[in-house]
Design a protein around this nucleic acid. Structure first.
Lengths: 100, 100, 100, 100
DNA sequence: CGGCCGTCTAAGGATC
DNA sequence: GATCCTTAGACGGCCG
């Protein structure tokens, strides 16, 4: 696929040659369809996982946990400890600057 | 604060007892850990899928497709059914607004 | 306006009398239009204010401030101190339960 | 940490000096305070507008209108222009995808 | 590296 | 009154 078959700078003057031309109704169209369908499939899976996560939070909630706090913990576990500290330091500086 | 696990509206059945109390270092802690780890695992999977999708777009791009256009197509394929419904809703609203 | 002129439980049997009937093409329609336009106008203003806020944050950023931290401060100033403490306490409990 | 005001990518000109340094209790603090107060003021106004909108809906309701339907109408009036554009975009995309 | 886009969170409204 | 859902705002990642 050396030719930029669908990029906007391609063949807009009507000089679509047979190679490209065949492609539109043939292999390239199939390729395009394949790409789109694979992406859509993966997005489906992503969505399913989001549902699973939601279910777990529902379960957590009915077990008496505070979902918001759990989210916070997960967020913190993702961050570098130094990041957390840095933010807090800055917050502190601003608060002092404001005399709070 | 005998049952730190629970939100303020806990005690539905009043059965917050020594079992639960012991929980901070025991079952409830395990439960909490389980919840967090399962969510983190699922988020990992989600992230992996996002990577796969990205790979497909990279492939598409090197095959000469316009990635932005493909994204738009996918978005529109997702939107269309809702648009149809929306039109019907619109019609309905106006009919009701006119008291027909 | 004694009549529930547009509520769903009104006059669905076609017995729209002349009073109501006139209203649809007259005063009630005008009233409806007025309501809609006033709301839309206020929403415009809201949107404008959102833009102004955004501008201030842009200014803050180019003055070297950390916008995210400023947001945090604003949020904290809005909250009851007891609320803040409560969240932090719960967070602490969970962290201890997890042995973090 | 001579210039707590600044984010880590500060020092664009290296002129972080005593002026700035004094700033925590002086100009920069004032600047920060100004930013925060202006934002808070604008948020107040936003909140007030939200209240006004709510009032209008209350009025509408007591005039016998169906508030939910009015909300929908407003939403749709907002959406329509974009939908028109969207259709044209769609047309364009397909034409491009087909290489026409 | 700044703007744009999509996702995710939090609040408000509708529903039962 | 509680829950669910929709919507607006915030946040982070991606692209140009």
């Amino acid at each position: 696929m050396l030719d930029g078959q669908f990029q906007e700078d391609s063949d807009e003057d009507g000089a679509v040659d047979t190679r490209t031309d065949a492609a539109v109704g043939g292999i390239a169209a199939d390729r395009l369809r394949s790409i789109i369908e694979r992406v859509e499939r993966l997005e489906e899976e992503r969505k399913a996982l989001a549902g699973d996560i939601k279910d777990i939070f529902t379960e957590a909630k009915s077990a008496g946990f505070d979902v918001k706090v759990i989210r916070q913990i997960i967020r913190l576990r993702k961050l570098e400890p130094s990041e957390v500290e840095e933010q807090e330091t800055l917050l502190d500086i601003y608060r002092r600057a404001l005399g709070i």
